[in-house]
């Protein structure tokens, strides 16, 4: 069996008294596409934010390509370069043009020459269908366009895995599809993806496995078909009924 690209083993996390993550065990193989879902407050976002060290965890071990993830470790910055992240609120840098949003990381961190970085950035912007907006600033774009830029910005660092933290939750309904389409195209390239999302259509279309979380623990893991057609837990049944009206 292939070595897992990402491994969470016995991960526990507390916010003072509150137990946010309980004994999380999860292995993600290269090229695998995972959708994480569950009721709000179940620890989904916290879990994926632990994978690139945006949150610290108290117990257990997370590794990315064999490297342990620890927030105070000097190696965390190298790990973050290999783990792309897309946020709910896009978090583009408003003082930089779209193009500069994409090239800043490669130029400053990977020492890519500007010309090469810009060529690569334009390629990525074409891929997310936004090439003609490269010289604009983030505030001039719609939410859906900004989120596609955010995906391209993460890809510009050539990550081994992409984390999506509710990428469509802050979007107006008519813009959800354009972002999901880009994510589906990305899945088609063989990128390893972990997506926290409530978009069940997306889960069915691309996920290899669906991870269902409740109360900080992983309650169920299964293929999209088995999870949606025959959930094993009552919590999952309730949840599926609520998201698929």
């Amino acid at each position: 069996m292939e070595n897992p690209l990402i491994r969470l083993a016995g991960v526990n996390k507390w916010y003072s008294q509150f137990h946010v993550l309980r004994d999380i065990d999860l292995e993600v193989k290269p090229g695998e596409r995972i959708v994480v879902c569950g009721p709000s407050g179940s620890g989904k976002s916290t879990m994926i934010r632990c994978i690139n060290g945006l949150e610290a965890y108290e117990q257990g071990l997370i590794t990315v390509a064999g490297e342990p993830v620890a927030q105070d470790d000097d190696r965390i910055e190298a790990i973050r370069q290999r783990v792309g992240m897309v946020f709910q609120n896009f978090n583009l840098f408003p003082h930089l043009s779209i193009l500069d949003n994409l090239t800043l990381g490669p130029i400053k961190l990977k020492r890519v020459p500007r010309v090469a970085a810009e060529a690569r950035a334009m390629e990525l912007l074409e891929r997310v269908h936004i090439g003609h907006q490269a010289r604009k600033f983030p505030n001039q774009l719609s939410g859906g366009q900004q989120q596609r830029v955010a995906i391209a910005r993460a890809l510009a660092m050539e990550p081994q895995v992409m984390l999506f933290d509710e990428p469509t939750s802050a979007l107006d309904p008519e813009m959800v599809k354009e972002v999901l389409d880009v994510m589906i195209e990305l899945a088609g390239t063989g990128m390893t993806m972990i997506c926290v999302t409530h978009e069940m259509g997306f889960a069915r279309a691309v996920a290899d496995r669906v991870v269902f979380m409740a109360d900080g623990a992983i309650a169920e893991i299964g293929t999209p078909d088995s999870f949606f057609e025959a959930p094993r837990t009552e919590r999952a049944r309730q949840f599926i009924q609520q998201v698929i009206h």
């Binding site: 690139n52 370069q81 792309g84 992240m85 946020f87 990381g105 400053k108 961190l109």
Partner: peptide
């Protein structure tokens, strides 16, 4: 979110401050 986005790309403290936070 600006700090987090910079950190997620792999910027350390000084680069985050110099390129992302202070200019804004």
């Amino acid at each position: 979110g600006q700090y987090e986005a910079a950190m997620a790309i792999g910027f350390g403290y000084w680069r985050t401050m110099l390129h992302i936070i202070l200019p804004q």
